[in-house]
Design a protein around this nucleic acid. Structure first.
Ligand SMILES: [Mn+2]
Ligand SMILES: [Mn+2]
Ligand SMILES: [Zn+2]
Ligand SMILES: [Zn+2]
Lengths: 157, 157
DNA sequence: TTTATTAATGATAATGATTGTCATTAACAT
DNA sequence: ATGTTAATGACAATCATTATCATTAATAAA
């Protein structure tokens, strides 16, 4: 199975073609930006970055592409409470894998964490199983966020 | 300890006075609505309900009051992905206590669940302790949501 | 109880993230 | 190379939320 190391054609080539979607310059540029950052970018953040290397793109296309990427599971969409959605690549060579977030309610700082994920997975699997049966829900995803104050914001009087 | 049963003066009387906030008719009406429902109401939902018994109220005041109630911890604010914030009383005689949510991505249905809360509390306490130390965060709150399809939406082809 | 202080309110306008429209472009199967 | 039509970009529209500001009323002082 070639190209698993990211040295060949971009790993998402097949993702699009397989679903009948066209691989356009806009979509490649957006995925490029997402795959080169560890930040949690808003649609406008992404637009501004893409615009530098592909000035023809429009903000509307960024929104449409992000919606598509979220629907197909390639990107996660988050709400951290600052009024704009944030996006993050869900998989690929550069992603840190399954993780959750610490959100500072003082300054908005976001910390990715992967600690306790094993214990968490076990509890969540059990919980998902129980909830699926009890409420007849087909669970596909979950969200965990911790809120608090980062080290900076704790020391502001 | 009187009034624990909700038969005396509203339990939130002291909450306001203690913080230096005035207990106005608007605020009482909003808390009344929130304490009489188990739904997850938007600001406009609340406005419409309050308006029936207190027509002088404005939507702006509903937003301002909700912000105050969230800041003081009396109300929780949620984003279930439908573009408007949802509010829920965090404590009081009628609240079901600490719980989390199942969100149907098909129709938006919300289910409160309290199952596995004990196991969850244990894992989260441990996680919070670990994350607090590792990332120097003072954690105050957490959010857990499961996403999936409710029994209705599973059977739509 | 009357009065003074000022937090709270409501009408209205403004904001800003996101979505809808539609003529034009370009990806890709043939 | 060509045709089909998904995708795009410019622009307008939507709509939840926030800002402004003159007026009202909750509370404490007299
Ligand atoms: Mn992240
Ligand atoms: Mn609830
Ligand atoms: Zn902070
Ligand atoms: Zn449903």
């Amino acid at each position: 199975m070639p190209w698993r190391d990211g040295t060949g054609p971009p790993w998402w080539h097949g993702k699009f073609r397989g679903c009948g979607y066209r691989l356009t310059a806009s979509r490649q540029a957006i995925l490029d930006v997402l795959s080169k950052t560890s930040k949690h970018l808003s649609a406008e953040d992404i637009y501004l970055k893409v615009h530098k290397i592909y000035p023809a793109i429009g903000l509307t296309t960024v929104y449409r592409t992000l919606e598509l990427l979220v629907q197909t599971g390639m990107v996660f969409k988050f709400d951290f409470g600052d009024g704009k959605a944030r996006y993050e690549l869900s998989e690929g060579p550069r992603s840190i894998g399954h993780h959750h977030h610490l959100v500072c309610t003082g300054c908005g700082r976001i910390v990715d964490y992967t600690d306790f994920i094993d214990d968490e997975i076990e509890l969540l699997n059990q919980t998902e199983k129980g909830l699926s049966k009890k409420y007849n829900f087909k669970i596909t995803n979950h969200l965990i966020q911790f809120y608090g104050l980062c080290y900076r914001c704790q020391n502001i009087k």
